Computed example of a mutant assay.
Amino acid sequence: MSAVVVTAAFHPIEGGRESLTAALEQSLAAVHAEDGCELYALHDAEDGTLVLIEKWSSRDALAAHAAGDAVVRLNAAVAPFLVRPTTVTAMTALPAGDARRGAI
């Protein structure tokens, strides 16, 4: 099975960025412990969003994550600080060029 890369962009309410960051940071350890989690890293985007860049070993691992307790808790924790729903995009790599640098 191919790995799956996901971006999840969180759109903070005005004045809620710090609280949103803290809520997301609190979720990291639980997700890092999930089977199939290869990467789950929080990033500060230039457009003001907070973005989780994720890599899962398979679509099954991603589906288990999406249905798991860690995501339920994360969604409840971040909800008060979002101006609109999180934008989640799942992707499959199209490796090109150098094998180590051509895919996440």
Rank of each mutant, 00 (worst) to 15 (best):
M1R: 13
S2H: 12
A3Q: 14
V4I: 15
V4K: 03
V5L: 13
V5T: 14
V6Y: 03
A8D: 00
A8M: 02
A9S: 13
F10A: 05
F10C: 03
F10R: 01
I13Q: 09
I13F: 06
E14H: 09
G15L: 05
G15A: 03
S19E: 14
T21S: 11
A22R: 14
A23Q: 01
L24W: 04
E25R: 15
E25H: 11
Q26M: 12
L28K: 09
L28D: 05
A29L: 12
V31A: 11
V31G: 00
H32N: 11
H32G: 06
A33I: 06
A33P: 02
A33W: 08
A33G: 02
E34F: 07
D35S: 15
C37H: 05
C37T: 12
C37V: 10
Y40R: 07
Y40F: 14
Y40W: 08
A41C: 13
L42F: 02
H43G: 04
H43L: 07
D44H: 12
D44A: 12
D44N: 11
A45N: 12
T49K: 08
T49N: 06
V51D: 00
V51H: 05
V51I: 15
L52C: 08
L52E: 01
I53W: 10
I53E: 01
K55N: 08
W56R: 04
S57L: 07
S58I: 04
S58L: 05
R59K: 15
R59Q: 15
D60S: 10
D60M: 09
D60I: 08
D60K: 08
A61R: 12
L62A: 04
A64N: 10
A64S: 13
A64R: 15
H65R: 06
A66D: 05
A66Q: 10
A66P: 01
A66C: 03
A67V: 09
A67P: 04
V71L: 07
V72Q: 15
V72I: 12
L74P: 00
N75M: 14
N75R: 15
A76P: 01
A76V: 11
A76L: 06
V78L: 01
V78D: 00
A79Q: 08
P80W: 06
F81H: 09
L82H: 01
V83L: 13
V83M: 13
V83E: 14
R84D: 00
R84V: 05
P85D: 10
P85Q: 10
P85L: 05
T86G: 03
T87F: 03
T87Y: 04
V88Y: 05
T89N: 09
A90S: 12
M91S: 13
M91I: 08
T92C: 07
A93I: 01
P95E: 06
P95Y: 13
P95Q: 10
A96G: 14
D98P: 07
R100G: 08
G102R: 15
G102M: 11
G102I: 11
G102L: 10
G102F: 11
I104S: 12
I104W: 15
I104K: 10
